[in-house]
Simulated scan of single mutants.
Amino acid sequence: MIKNILTIAGTDPSGGAGIQADIKTFSALGTYAMSVITAVVAQNTQGVRSFQIMDPNMVADQIDAIFQDIHVDAVKIGMLGNELIVRIVAHKLREYNVAKVVIDPVMVAKSGDHLINDAAVNALKDELFPLATLITPNIPEACVLLNRNDPITMLEMKEEAQKLLSFGSHWVLLKGGHLEGFNCFDVLCNKNEIFDYEDERVLTNNNHGTGCTLSSAITALIPVMEIPDAVREAKTYLGNALKAGNQLQVGKGHGPVNHFYRIWNL
Rank of each mutant, 00 (worst) to 15 (best):
P130L: 08
G251P: 01
A90L: 06
F26L: 01
I222S: 04
K163Q: 15
M54D: 02
I88N: 13
A28K: 08
K252H: 13
F26Q: 01
H208N: 01
A120I: 13
S166M: 14
E226W: 05
A161M: 12
H259P: 01
S35H: 11
G168C: 05
K92G: 05
D199S: 13
N192E: 15
V36K: 08
D12C: 11
I227C: 05
P105A: 03
C189D: 13
N258V: 00
K125L: 06
V108R: 04
G10Q: 11
M154F: 03
D61E: 14
D186F: 13
I116Y: 03
Y96M: 08
I37V: 15
H71A: 12
A142E: 09
I70K: 06
L29A: 06
Q20T: 03
R87E: 15
M107R: 04
F129D: 07
N206W: 02
M54R: 06
V36F: 09
A244Q: 00
Q247D: 09
V121C: 04
A142Y: 10
A109N: 06
I218M: 09
V48R: 13
L238E: 00
A21C: 03
R49C: 05
N117D: 15
A161T: 12
I135Y: 10
G112K: 07
A119F: 08
A220H: 10
L80P: 05
I66V: 15
A220R: 09
Q162C: 10
Q62Y: 11
W171Q: 01
L266E: 11
L29W: 09
P56W: 05
P228W: 03
Q46K: 10
V48D: 04
S27R: 07
P105D: 07
A42T: 11
M79E: 10
L266A: 14
R232N: 13
K252S: 12
D12H: 10
M107C: 07
N240T: 02
L248P: 01
T25Q: 01
K252F: 04
G253L: 00
I103L: 07
T153D: 11
Q162Y: 11
K158R: 14
E226D: 14
V250A: 00
L242W: 00
L128I: 07
T219H: 12
H91Q: 14
H170I: 09
V36D: 13
A142H: 10
I37K: 03
Q249W: 04
N138L: 13
L248F: 00
T25M: 01
G15D: 11
V172S: 00
A244F: 00
Y261G: 07
A17R: 09
E141D: 12
